[in-house]
Amino acid sequence: MTETSVSDRRKGAAALEKGHPAAPDSIAPAPDAGGARGGPSFADEGAPDGASGAAEPGAGVEGAEAIRPDGAKDAGAAAAPAEPVGDALEVPGEDGAGERFFTVGAEAVGLRLDVAVSRALEVSRAQVKKWIEAGRVTVDGRAARPAERLSGGEAIRVRPPAPRPARPRPNALSLRIVYEDAVLAVVDKPPGMSVHPSPGHDDDTLVNALLYHLKALSGIGGELRPGIVHRLDKDTSGLLVVAKTDRAHLALAAQLQARTMKRTYTAVVCGVPAEEVGLIDLPIGRHPVDRKRMAVVPNGRPARTRYRVVRRFRRHSIVEASLETGRTHQIRVHFAAIGHPLVGDPVYGRCRFGAMSRQALHATRLGFRHPETGAWLEFTSPLPPDLTALIDALSKNEA
């Protein structure tokens, strides 16, 4: 069987490669790793060639912007010390944060509102802009715009949001722990659960649940991401490995970087791919216009996704996808790029079917070497109810 490689279409390139070998099916008990619980698949043989790849740690930091007194951006320049724009008075706020009041002085006449507040309170202009857009900043008692110019004498009221907790709180959330021993755990994340806290979302994440259910987590990922070795999108369900010690975290991260950790996903896509087995080899980077989205771009980072069509319907298909790299939204971006977006994906496709309200993507299989014993561990996760219902509906309507 041949495998079609989809490369940058602007170059008109295509490659043919041999099929990707599957993971070992043989299972044997591994040495006890500190009192394991759960029923994983173990094999002390070598990990399969071409096992899935790295969610590479770290991301480039965009260049800092200095703000000129007129509010314009001066990229790459150092920001000169700013003159004060008025004395701020702090009083207790309604939501627990201190409310700030100040009157615009002569030195701030002509400044943009977001620039003036940023200088007065010594917080970033980007943060102030969010506050203004959320209605947390008023000028003379009325709502305002970030770009509004000040004429002097205005009374400005600022209601910053309550500060985030320094460390995530344990939450008593339901969590399926597939396997656990002294140094790691494998969990089955439900759809709709973020992996770690983010601004405005401090609770009800996987990290909050892990802090409640597990006695220890590695600290390498930082206070907001304890134990997190790799991630899934909020609305992607399935398997994740979590480190309980720093040593295990480093070993698991090394496997991701070396692309020896196997991660296989089940997805339902729109349309029917022409080839039964294929390789999507397209670079991924930030969308040139919408910076919250990813896209296939010429100067993006290398990204490779192997896939196999598991079942064909008239207008949809079930595919199994394996990552060779770990770019943000990789599977979703890649399948959209070849004309087969995931069913229900609200960002990269407009393909809807039935009641599916999220991207139809589930992390079905996870395999890696145990960081202490060296044994090959492999786990599988059944499809969640919404994906099962979607496939049942397709079976009835498009058989």
Results as ranks from 00 to 15, higher is better:
Ile177Leu: 12
Glu90Asn: 10
Pro29Tyr: 09
Ala303Glu: 06
Lys129Glu: 15
Val277Asn: 11
Pro191Leu: 07
His249Asp: 08
Leu387Asn: 00
Ala36Thr: 07
Gly135Phe: 02
Ser151Ala: 15
Ala172Glu: 15
Tyr179Phe: 14
Arg145Leu: 14
Arg145Glu: 15
Arg332Cys: 00
Leu111Pro: 00
Ala336Thr: 04
Arg314Glu: 12
Arg291Ala: 07
His316Ser: 12
Ala337Lys: 04
Glu378Gly: 13
Leu111Tyr: 13
Ala79Val: 09
Gly227Glu: 08
Arg10Ser: 07
Asp290Pro: 06
Ala51Thr: 12
Ile391Asp: 09
Ile391Phe: 09
His340Phe: 03
Arg247Pro: 00
Leu366Cys: 01
Val296Gln: 05
Val187Thr: 05
Met294Gln: 07
Pro29His: 08
Ala336Val: 02
Phe379Asn: 02
Asp386Val: 05
Gly58Gln: 11
Gly50Pro: 07
Glu180Ser: 13
Tyr179Ala: 09
Pro163Ala: 03
Arg311Leu: 05
Leu252Ile: 10
Pro31Arg: 11
Gln255Phe: 10
Val123Tyr: 09
Pro161Glu: 00
Ala28Trp: 08
Thr305Lys: 02
Ala106Lys: 13
Tyr348Phe: 09
Leu150Tyr: 05
Asp140Lys: 00
Thr264Ala: 14
Arg315Asn: 13
Ala243Gly: 08
Gly200Ala: 01
Lys215Ser: 14
Pro197Trp: 09
Thr328Arg: 06
Glu133Ala: 11
Gly285Ala: 03
Ala15Gln: 13
Thr103Cys: 11
Ala108Asn: 05
Ser237Asp: 05
Glu94Asn: 10
Pro283Asn: 03
Val186Ala: 03
Glu372Ser: 11
Arg145Tyr: 07
Thr205Leu: 05
Pro160Gln: 02
Gly200Gln: 01
Val272Tyr: 06
Ala97Thr: 05
Ser317Leu: 02
Asp235Val: 04
His316Tyr: 10
Asn171Ser: 13
Asp392Thr: 09
His329Leu: 00
Leu210Asn: 10
Ala258Met: 10
Ala258Asp: 15
Pro384Trp: 02
His287Ala: 03
Gln359Glu: 10
Tyr307Pro: 07
Ile284Glu: 08
Cys351Leu: 04
Gln257Thr: 14
Ile338Thr: 07
Asp49Glu: 15
Val6Met: 10
Glu223Gln: 10
